[in-house]
Design a protein around this nucleic acid. Sequence first.
DNA 1: GTCATTAGGTACCAATTCGTAACTCATGGG
DNA 2: CCCATGAGTTACGAATTGGTACCTAATGAC
Lengths: 131, 131
Amino acid sequence: MGNLMDVIAAPRKESASCPVDFILRMLMGPWTTYILYNLKTHGPQRFGELKRRVSGVSAKMLTERLRTLEGAGLVRRDYEATIPPKVTYSLTSRGHELDDVLGRLAEVGMRWETEDAALRSLRATELKAAE
Amino acid sequence: MGNLMDVIAAPRKESASCPVDFILRMLMGPWTTYILYNLKTHGPQRFGELKRRVSGVSAKMLTERLRTLEGAGLVRRDYEATIPPKVTYSLTSRGHELDDVLGRLAEVGMRWETEDAALRSLRATELKAAE
DNA sequence: GTCATTAGGTACCAATTCGTAACTCATGGG
DNA sequence: CCCATGAGTTACGAATTGGTACCTAATGAC
């Protein structure tokens, strides 16, 4: 009975063979989650708009990330050769397939955060009580 | 109605405030998924054992990753000060909380992989037919 | 005629990352 | 006496990363 996790076992060089590693590498490019999040919540939008929303990202970085996401089929790029040019980015259906997983990941992350915060405040009160 | 994904919107410098980003950054440290996978499937094990299993990782890297995972509470480190020393690593319950999400991520990644493979072979046959 | 506009491309530069090789501890085995 | 052992640590060095500043195209507005 091969477990789904079995697929993670591929420790080769460059680790090109593990789809989990591949997806994580994709998602973890700097700014990537912010880009995906903005495309998801604000819908299709132009390069400059996106750049303004993902505050702090450089044009170079944003371009590189979008190209990568496009290459992976998560994002669509619509180019209108007007002057000045108009380029609109949007999530593909494949891009939307991550909504669920990312939502769960957010859930776990938030649970840990509140747990840790609770622990910290508990420790703080203990310390005060011990004085 | 704040969506769970809302939590992703935190584009500040260093982005310390987004739990999804935090978790992804954690998981995406190099080798991390391989380490977690091995601890999950082969159970608690010693440093050298793990290093042999995660083939290609350097001691330095493995140490650094394990320390980070320990700091995040995903991995437990049991140190026996014998000579030579014996250090055993294992997943904490928090570490196991990722099983589900990672499984789903693997599912998505594998689906994409097979879809892409099907597309490629389709294209190949089309090209042959066009000759 | 010159300036601003959009979506980048390019060159350069500093900082970070990760691998390699050498070193460590105290002990048992040859 | 010397070496191997386990779990690292340290120093060094090459490669990658990501930021900044500057360049581009063709047009309309001033």
